[in-house]
Simulated assay, not measured.
Amino acid sequence: MTDTNGGSWTHDWAHLDSIVLHYVEAGDPDDPLVVLLHGFPEFWYAWRNQIDSLAAAGFHVVAPDLRGYNRSEKPPGVDSYRLKRLVDDVVELVDHFEAERANVVGHDWGGVIAWEFGHRRPDRLDRLVVLNAPHPEALERELRSPTQLARSWYALFFQLPRVPEAILKRTDGWLGELLRTAPANSAAFDESAIERYEHAIARPGALTAAIDYYRAFGRSQLRRWFGLTDSSGRHPTIEAETLVIWGEQDSALGTELLDGLDRWVPDARIERLPDASHWVQNDAPEPVTDLLEEFLA
């Protein structure tokens, strides 16, 4: 089908082992697979400025709605959104397209999943790209800092049961206000895009599912800190070629999170965009697209 944004994007559903995911697809299925993973509180449309260009550059582009978001299935319960399940979704999506390996690109929560995919499934990864999402080891280190802890206040607030949903549902237009004011580029989200974002997060169960990502992560951290899991929390080295794109005006994630990245990702290249915010691929769509095309080629 032809999307209203002007690109020729095919919408479909992948019936995976444990979840049904909606996705948008572009490009030749015989070309190298690129999986684009969005963040909170977005959906596949976060990549509207990159999909067509990547397809034209010779990639088979797949942008799913992550589990719980927009048109994808929304299983109940916090444990449905544990990182292992989210990574398994990506592995099964790659299987769905009968690809041995994929280039995985993730922003925000999609970036967290991308990092974890790189650690857990290097056998299925070609190249890795992460946009404004902290490496888990760096995040744990910086959360000891009062500055980063204060920046992450919302993640702590989201640990509360039911309260965040109740407040946000009563705060009419909260998402539109966020998308109008948080990006560095005032044109990052036009009114049509904002309307689509608001419609997606208003689908039954979508807001709770999105917040459950934070709850699941918080619970896993507590289990580890209190010795209730066998995992030490240490991550194996990611050997794949990795590109990190970082909007330096991110109000929630400090650039200190980039320090020492080569300890865990020795083949990492960092591209800093000083005039972009957390919403980096929307603030600076052309530079981000150019970096993706050049790196993945």
Rank of each mutant, 00 (worst) to 15 (best):
T2E: 14
D3M: 10
N5V: 03
N5R: 13
G7H: 15
W9Q: 08
D12H: 09
W13P: 01
A14M: 07
H15S: 13
H15W: 02
V20Q: 13
V20S: 15
L21R: 06
Y23R: 02
P29R: 06
D31M: 09
L33C: 11
V35Q: 10
P41W: 01
P41K: 04
P41S: 07
Y45T: 03
N49E: 15
Q50V: 03
A56E: 15
F59D: 10
H60R: 04
V61P: 14
V62S: 08
R67M: 03
Y69I: 00
Y69Q: 10
N70V: 02
N70R: 09
E73F: 07
E73W: 07
P76E: 14
P76H: 12
P76W: 10
V78C: 03
D79C: 05
L83V: 11
D88W: 01
D88I: 03
H96K: 00
F97V: 09
E98T: 09
E98W: 03
A99G: 05
A102H: 13
V104W: 02
V104G: 03
G106N: 07
H107T: 02
G110A: 03
V112M: 04
I113W: 06
W115G: 08
H119K: 09
R120E: 13
L125V: 12
L125Q: 12
R127W: 03
V129E: 08
L131E: 11
P134K: 04
L139M: 09
R144I: 05
S145C: 11
T147Q: 14
T147M: 14
Q148E: 11
Q148T: 03
L149N: 11
S152M: 07
W153A: 13
W153Y: 15
Y154W: 13
A155H: 09
A155F: 10
F157L: 14
F158V: 14
R162N: 13
R162H: 14
A166Y: 12
A166S: 10
L168W: 06
R170W: 07
E177A: 14
E177S: 13
T181I: 08
F189V: 00
D190S: 09
D190A: 12
D190G: 12
D190Y: 01
E191M: 07
S192M: 10
S192C: 06
S192R: 13
I194T: 02
E195Y: 00
Y197P: 00
Y197N: 05
H199R: 14
A200E: 01
A200H: 02
A202G: 03
P204W: 01
P204S: 08
T208Y: 00
A209V: 01
A210V: 00
Y213E: 00
R215G: 04
A216C: 10
A216D: 04
F217I: 13
G218F: 05
S220K: 02
S220W: 01
Q221V: 13
G233M: 06
G233K: 11
T237Y: 02
T242V: 01
T242Y: 06
L243Q: 10
I245Y: 02
E248S: 09
S251Q: 15
A252G: 14
L257I: 12
L258V: 09
R263E: 14
W264R: 05
W264K: 07
P266F: 04
A268H: 07
I270G: 11
R272W: 02
R272P: 12
L273E: 04
D275H: 07
H278V: 03
H278S: 01
W279V: 01
W279D: 01
V280S: 05
V280M: 08
N282T: 08
D283E: 04
L291Y: 00
L291K: 06
E293D: 11
E293C: 13
E294G: 13
F295H: 14
L296E: 11
